[in-house]
Every structure is written in C-alpha cells, then in structure tokens.
C-alpha cells in the first residue's frame, strides 16, 4: 500500500517536473534506456538472421 502511494507520488512529481520544463528528470537509470531485452523466441530468430544477413562492414564504411 505504502509502496503504491510512494510510486504514485513520484509519478505525479515527474509530471509536475515536466510541466516546469524538466522533461528529462527521470531516474538516473532511465538514461540508459533499460531497453526491453529481446524475447528468447525472437532471439533464436535473430541469431539465425544474424548468420544469414551481413551487418554492413564498418571498415568498408571507413573507406
């Protein structure tokens, strides 16, 4: 219960901060994106695709 109140309070503060123009004022960790990891099933596909599709060569680009 307390946890929920604190979480909501912080969500409200973030909203108020954005009204004040501080839109990036989120938790430090959010800077790093905490991106969704690929789903394991998708991973198998990705690995397969990785094997068949070439990532364009960085050294080529450098030339």
């Amino acid at each position: 219960m307390k946890k929920r109140i604190l979480t909501r309070a912080n969500a409200l503060i973030i909203l108020l901060l954005s009204v004040l123009g501080f839109t990036g004022c989120r938790e430090y960790l959010v800077k790093y994106g905490v991106p969704e990891p690929p789903k394991p099933t998708r991973v198998a596909e990705t690995v397969e695709n990785e094997e068949t599709q070439d990532i364009p060569s960085a050294t080529d680009q450098a030339r």
Binding site: K2, K3, L6, T7, A9, N10, I13, I14, L16, L17, L20, F22, C25, E27
Partner: peptide, 16 residues
C-alpha cells in the same frame, strides 16, 4: 521549485 520537487522524489525513491 523543480529542485525541491526532485528532493521530494528522491526521498520517496529511497524508501522504494
């Protein structure tokens, strides 16, 4: 005001 709000948020975050 923003800094005061942020310090309040930090206080809550510490508990969470």
């Amino acid at each position: 005001i923003a800094l005061l709000l942020e310090s309040l948020r930090r206080k809550n975050l510490k508990q969470l």
